[in-house]
Design a protein around this nucleic acid. Sequence first.
DNA 1: GATACATTCAATTGAACAATTGAATGTATC
DNA 2: GATACATTCAATTGTTCAATTGAATGTATC
Lengths: 228, 228
Amino acid sequence: MSSQNPERLVYSHVAELARAFGHEHRLKLLDLMSQGEWSLDELAKRSGISVANASQHLQTLRRVGVVTARRAGKNVLFSLADGPVFDAVVAMRALAERNIAEVRLAVTDYFGGLDDMEPVSLDEIRARMRDGNVVLLDVRDEAEYRQGHLPGAIHIASDELEASLSRLPRDREVIAYCRGRYCILSSDAVALLRRNGFRSRRLEDGYAEWKAANRSEASDETTGLRTG
Amino acid sequence: MSSQNPERLVYSHVAELARAFGHEHRLKLLDLMSQGEWSLDELAKRSGISVANASQHLQTLRRVGVVTARRAGKNVLFSLADGPVFDAVVAMRALAERNIAEVRLAVTDYFGGLDDMEPVSLDEIRARMRDGNVVLLDVRDEAEYRQGHLPGAIHIASDELEASLSRLPRDREVIAYCRGRYCILSSDAVALLRRNGFRSRRLEDGYAEWKAANRSEASDETTGLRTG
DNA sequence: GATACATTCAATTGAACAATTGAATGTATC
DNA sequence: GATACATTCAATTGTTCAATTGAATGTATC
């Protein structure tokens, strides 16, 4: 028993939210935070923009309630807020991939690739991990892996992969993953592994999507990957 | 074998897409088109903005591929493009409803309402339509109803409802729906019906959401509502 | 309490966007 | 083919947003 027309109120906020998503740098920052929490300095470094600029974009995201911050020592750590934040990004990405030809082409070009490059889905990897006939390989950097990773995944950062091939089995398929759907690290890793005689494919989605999916499924204990 | 880093390309397009959603008028236009196709004149009238202004916003939406247009007689009819356009709007709305307190309050205030006002879900109505113990009532205007409606729904425009109460049964619950989740017509209709001694509740989502859901479920013949 | 350092604020400049107006285009109908 | 009318284009003005810089704040650590 207060506001008059809810539609206008809702849409003015939705529009504000959409504008908050409407900048490349902010999408990149959200992408980074989908891996865990980071200081401003770290976010600036990883996104390749200045500290002041990153700070302002982060404030924009905080203002609309999609990013939260907490202090830890002398740093403030930024992370995605609770709620379906990443899901909204995913919905926009899905729309872009479906309706914008240039995006569709770039993605299939890069990731859909050759027939035997057919990426593996999260559902598929679940079953195959149970059977134990695959190795899950996380090729993100150390800090990202430490903040969280798929159950049962081993970690070799992409820039150390070539020197660490002996740690990988040749009798099982190596499924590589990285930050998310549009991260090229795992794609490059698969190419490297194949050049060296391994059987390898890419996980279609990455840590970000896995985490978002497991968040939505709340605390349903049966949904995570199991190492066996 | 063309573009370098797909991430930046994807995100620049996603950002453009997000900005296209980032205006109240455009969200309203998308809302209207979620009911069907309309001429520019009709869209301007229904959204309450000038024809020239509506045209420009529609061009913005066409440019990013979320709206299409076809000529019919002396009018151009605008409609949502194929693909998960409405789904993206829904994801943003869900985020706003969850993360922005003002929105959450306004919505529960208006639609969540009293205990026995508990809105009915699309899933629930499916089962109850089969049992035949409810009447589905579409209170949108004639033109909207004609462009498409839920299977089995009867139509009484909201501004004719009070004069047409005799057409409704008193021994079954009347489930009213309108354009979508944030449309107040069905909410008002429920209030009117209750004042006149009917048992009545509101469908939580409206035609837009139903149509989007049935579109996603492709041509799965088992998913629509059945009249019996 | 003083220092160091991470983050935020404030002020500036340039660029992009929103709305309005009036003219121009293009298609149907006569 | 001429006319009527729906839609789009072009030009304008005011507003909002992006990025940079340098100063200011605030918290941890010594």
